[in-house]
Design a protein around this nucleic acid. Structure first.
Lengths: 250, 250
DNA sequence: AAGAATACTGCAAATGTATGCAAAGTTTTT
DNA sequence: AAAAACTTTGCATACATTTGCAGTATTCTT
């Protein structure tokens, strides 16, 4: 096995597991503990990860290569969700969409004939719209965060001040009826709050795995949403708590 | 077996396996280890792959843009050009790079250990830098032009006002000793002019096909360049007219 | 503080690399 | 068609990198 190949595998594994253990990894890749350790040191020098006692953890700048969907089941859920969302779009609308797999998937599924303006801070999303000739894209510039492949920071914020959109499609890590919509990255939560301000209505598209999940930074309360779209039927028992809040759910 | 034929087989194998081991391959193709190794060196110089200890791994450039590239010859030229350009980069520099295959290729080839800030308006370029943990990316937001996968317009312009870069690597469609550097898209030519203002030195990387080509919109005169990098030897007769202009050419 | 787990160091074996050289093969020139 | 010039190839050599191991030091856990 080539050293480079092994290091690639280490990074991949780190990407999915967020942390790795030398001994385990050595057995898994069938090389000595020392080789793994030396690889880790090398990768740390290059800045790909952080070495800790007993292993290594993902560096916040670590690239996310698996932008694609995370497995068949989740892709099916996205399909259902996306189909529901498509009904909202009408010609001449201006839509804010941020990063995340859900939004990316929805953008890809948009009808080729739709005439929209989409405002985004996500590079994969912008590129997904290359195939949609009638959709204008406004890209919000700023500091680029490789991990999420989005821009953030005051420059994004400043540009948002001049935007008046019809909808904001918010991607989140967790949706909880009591704890609200939340996300892992602090800066991102701030931008999301501003995106809400910049749109008449905020829509949250989320697959069932994210329901009742709470992450570190709250973007807003659940009631502040105008609409939630999930892959479940609106009457599904899993949505009971959410239905009580008076937010439209489809 | 012809060398060409063998190199084609090597590339094919690399395409499917993503990696190559010299010993295995030597047995497989029934040629000496050394021939394989020399082939790999040659292919690396042309930018087709990356040589590592004991073998070679796929160059991400080919896997990403693989089908889009304009033929093998052009990739070879880019490899030579890119190698020359790499000498300019030093830690802590701020570099403006706009769109185009040349810049994209160069960005991918940057050393993983380089500590740079790269300012760009090209989405593929920003994403190419995901793999460079020490490179900060500032993305210039604005109106997104799908055709070139870059942003343009007044918003980009406004953000550029606050940038002071060390180098600007300009991508162009045509370079002519008399008619200057030119490009097809009007708006883009304006942004390029501003990018020149925002950097101490402007560098133009161009393959020979673009020499003596004139496009609709002139960005600047040839003399305004600080450095031109081509795939040719500086002494090449095709560069005669350019050499007279007093611009450094490597 | 003791014991366990993990990390570091230096070393030797295995493997890989660079280079020069001569033979074989190709192309160009005469 | 022969000779000359150039390229490619395989091999031998010396040098460099990678790897696993053993011994020792350090850090973590209880």
């Amino acid at each position: 096995m080539l050293k480079e190949e092994r290091q690639r595998l280490i990074l991949d594994k780190l990407n999915t597991d967020k942390k790795i253990n030398f001994v385990e990894l050595g057995k898994f890749l069938d090389v000595s503990y020392d080789s793994i350790r030396r690889d880790i040191i090398e990768l740390e020098d290059k800045g790909f990860l952080k070495k800790v006692h007993g292993g290594a953890v993902a560096n916040s700048y670590l690239s996310v290569l698996g932008t694609k969907t995370n497995g068949a089941s989740s892709s099916e859920e996205l399909g259902i969700l996306s189909k529901k969302a498509q009904k909202l779009f009408e010609n001449r609308q201006t839509i804010i969409m941020d990063g995340g797999t859900t939004n990316f998937f929805m953008a890809e599924q948009l009808a080729k004939t739709l005439e929209l303006t989409i405002v985004t801070n996500s590079t994969p999303l912008a590129m997904a719209l290359n195939e949609h000739p009638r959709i204008d894209v406004i890209f919000l510039g700023g500091t680029y965060f490789k991990r999420y492949q989005i821009t953030l920071g005051s420059e994004v914020s400043r540009q948002l001040e001049h935007i008046n959109a019809d909808y904001y499609f918010m991607g989140v890590n967790g949706v909880d009826a009591q704890k609200g919509l939340s996300i892992r990255h602090y800066e991102e939560s701030l931008i999301k709050q501003q995106m809400m301000q910049a749109a008449k209505k905020t829509v949250c598209c989320t697959i069932e795995e994210k329901l009742n999940v709470q992450e570190a930074h709250r973007v807003c309360n659940f009631q502040q949403l105008d609409l939630m779209i999930t892959n479940l039927k609106p009457t599904d028992v899993a949505l009971k708590d959410f239905q009580k809040q008076g937010v439209e759910i489809i």
